[in-house]
Amino acid sequence: MELAFVLEKFILITVIFLVSLGVAAYSTLAERKIAGYLQDRVGPNRAGPGGMFQPLADGLKMFMKEEIIPTDSNKFLFIAGPSLALLTACIGSAVIPWGPNIILGGKTIALQVADINVGVLYIFGVVSLGVYGLMIGGWASNNKFSLMGAVRAASQSISYEIPMGLSLIALLLVTNTLSLKEIVEQQHGGNWNIIYQPLGFIIFLVCSFAETNRTPFDLPECETELVGGYHTEYSGFKMGAFMFAEYLNMFVASAVMSTLYFGGYNYPGIDWVSNLVGPIIGPLIAMAVLFAKIFAFIFFFMWVRWTVPRFRYDQLMNLGWKVLIPLAIANIVISGIVITVYDKFF
């Protein structure tokens, strides 16, 4: 491994990490602003112009607050919970291709940390690990509400991983590859996977709402029943870590959905534009397009949150096991038949 390669990856990782933290921080502001606008209010607007510095103020508040660790809690696991939640939220972005290769001084720089050939499965694995933080944190608090939240988080995440995985299988039948880079390259020229997998996309979307614990599936932390769910006992920065992890998860989920179903960094006329502006600006524009898609998804997440009420727990389980899983299996069967027939006769 040459030094330049290590340096390149190090810079890329740092930038991606900082950008995702920034996006997560500003998601908190966006959430409050969007909530305000949807409810005929204006949202926070005091800190800085239009409330621009509100995330900084919130972060500072989180740091300055008193950290309370309950006496009867398991101290090590109590601290490990939010740390794990933050960790698993951060590592998901490693395999997402953020843009086409940049050619800088005769050197090709990939805008992707790791192009592993099991990228889709890696995302899936990281998503399934995400629940540990909530479970450990909820259990270590030694509080019944927290435990209920943790148990709900676990069962919900397990239940919705299955239809998510099944909808991914149908997608893989179309793409024939597990590498995210190749999946994006295949969608070049308006050939987006949403056209081939509309049902699969809807299932994936619903499941990603459940996996990120967003309303209407935010039962692990629902205030009306469980006080705060798994983070009832948390305060200060550990509480902030949990909240941050949620927004990071949302960012990664949006990035994955744009990559898998909406062509990633592709946009109509990408070749024409990149011929026009050269090999450095072109990829950056493509990256901006990907981020625009991600922000659209984040907006969608928030829009749904402030529209749809929370599901009841039995409704959640019924939807997962009795609706989404059969639908996902049917989707696999139909996709398989269509692809086989298409390959045979055309």
């Binding site: 606008y37 949807l38 409810q39 005929d40 829009w303 749904v304 529209t307």
Partner: peptide
């Protein structure tokens, strides 16, 4: 029903703010 609701909330984004 969900899309209906979302259309309603989206319309509210452009209404006059009461603040």
């Amino acid at each position: 029903a969900i899309f209906q609701g979302m259309a309603i909330t989206f319309k509210h984004m452009f209404k006059k703010k009461e603040t």
